[in-house]
Design a protein around this nucleic acid. Sequence first.
DNA 1: CATTTGACGCCAA
DNA 2: TTTGGCGCCAAAT
Length: 87
Amino acid sequence: MEKFSEKVLKIVAKIPKGKVLTYKKVAGMAGKPKAYRTIGNILNKNYNSKIPCHRVIRSDGSLGGYNKGKKLKKILLQKEVKFYKSV
DNA sequence: CATTTGACGCCAA
DNA sequence: TTTGGCGCCAAAT
């Protein structure tokens, strides 16, 4: 059985383009709805190129943060949303 | 092994 | 409505 972090990373990796999930949502899918804190912790320390962590935002709709810079995250999300609108 | 950290979430004032 | 504070859990130190 993989660690909670591994499970979270897998879930985040499943987020399709133009879609964003909240930390709480990911935590719920991981099986720990109350572990939303841990989600951010894991992503922050274990940033993987295969993990679109920029698609994980706060429940309030805030971008939260980003290891590479939340500014970049905002741009990436806008680009993906744009792609979503294009379809 | 115990304590601190941390990209958060919800409630109260 | 907005701001502040408390609660929560896993991982890192």
